[in-house]
Simulated assay, not measured.
Amino acid sequence: MKKRVFVAGASGAIGRRLLPLLVAAGFEVTGTTTTPAKIATIEAAGARGIVLDGLDLASVGRAVSEAHPDVVIHELTSLAAMGGNPRKFGQDFATTNRLRTEGTDHLLAAAVAAGAQRFIAQSYTGWPNEPTGSLIKVETDPLDPTPAAASLKTVEAIRYLENAVTHTAGIDGMALRYGSLYGPGTGLGKGGGLLEMVAGRRFPLVAGGAGVWSFCDVDDAAAATVAAVTHGKPGIYNIVDDQPAPVSRWLPYLAESIGAKPPMRLPAWIAGPLVGDMGMSMITRIRGSSNAKAREELAWQPSYSSWRQGFESGLE
């Protein structure tokens, strides 16, 4: 009998890339969307599509019960409309924070009730890392205890999701901390907010650009998620490429790769009011992440080992 996989958030950036991989791997897949018009896209990938509001407890329970999955994958976010402006960070993440708290609770309860054996949830690594000590963090390093005010609720939501997923009795829970995604449907894809900021020279280099970022191609993130269906122990995994890099290195390279002018170089006293505390932290303070655990335990490796390769050929 085919293993049954339930993907909540199947029409998002990762979900769209994930469905055909799961179907090709031989799984029986149910995918959800909040938009009826996207059902056809889900079904074209070979999955069963249903409309679902992840914040509606009753409907989540019914949908998961009817699908009777062996594995539930939580890709619910509301990030598609983000403009990439760090000054609007809290506003942009408000609904996603609810999906990472209330939505996670709804899906976990439904998954346990339906007898699912594994629960895989989308998390994030990068700016939630504690911005002190080592420049490259592993999964056991703490999240930032004093994040910028704009990201406080989002870090709390990530912490809540990871704790709930990995400590719910009766199911093996895994939180996949994707790095900063690039490629179709992401902020660093065609029409994406962050890419447009770089193209418009609205993402400056400040104070040496020492903030370290870890990137991941969206298809590599989807491939890691498929690997997690059958590999790995319960726990947290960083899903990133092999080369964390400071803003001073990757930002000029990205601008050149898309044919944009080099980023502006601004002093902190000018840049601060433009990008806010969160933007300053992302440019000057944040830490990157190691993928060693995912490579070893998920039997996964990124097809783009470096953001250099990805920026050249993986943005569209």
Rank of each mutant, 00 (worst) to 15 (best):
T186E: 04
L298G: 08
A224I: 05
P273A: 15
K137Y: 08
G15I: 13
D70V: 00
G54H: 11
K88F: 10
Q122H: 09
N163R: 00
A121H: 02
M278V: 10
D56F: 05
N97K: 07
S257D: 11
A207W: 01
E28K: 11
E28R: 12
D241P: 02
A271I: 11
A221I: 03
P20F: 15
R295F: 09
N291K: 01
K261Y: 04
R16D: 11
D220N: 02
I283H: 12
G232F: 10
G133I: 04
G133Y: 06
D144L: 10
D219K: 13
R295Q: 12
A80I: 09
L205H: 03
G170D: 05
M282E: 05
S303T: 12
T284P: 02
I171G: 10
K261E: 04
L19V: 15
S281C: 05
R265S: 00
V206C: 05
N291V: 14
T225G: 06
R4E: 06
D277M: 10
H68D: 11
E256W: 10
R285F: 00
E316R: 14
A47Q: 14
P262D: 05
K38V: 00
K38P: 01
I39L: 15
P20S: 13
Y178W: 08
I14H: 12
T32P: 01
K38M: 06
V218F: 06
I283R: 06
P128E: 01
V247F: 05
D56E: 06
P147K: 03
P234R: 13
L194K: 07
G115N: 08
M1R: 10
I158D: 02
A149K: 07
A260H: 02
D53V: 13
I258A: 00
G185D: 00
R17D: 11
D217A: 13
A271N: 05
S151G: 07
I158H: 01
D56C: 01
G46M: 15
A149V: 08
A255D: 04
E297S: 06
M1P: 12
V51S: 08
P131D: 14
P204D: 04
N291L: 03
A271K: 01
A94S: 13
P147Y: 04
D242T: 10
Y124D: 08
C216D: 03
G288S: 04
V206I: 13
G235H: 01
L152A: 00
L251R: 02
A10V: 11
I136S: 09
A10H: 10
L22P: 14
V64R: 05
G200I: 13
G31W: 11
A80L: 14
I283M: 06
G235R: 12
W300F: 02
E316N: 13
Q309W: 00
M1L: 14
Y182P: 08
L266V: 12
R265Q: 09
F6I: 14
G314N: 04
D53H: 10
E196V: 03
A207G: 02
A292K: 14
D70F: 07
K137I: 06
R16P: 03
G211Y: 02
P273K: 09
G187S: 11
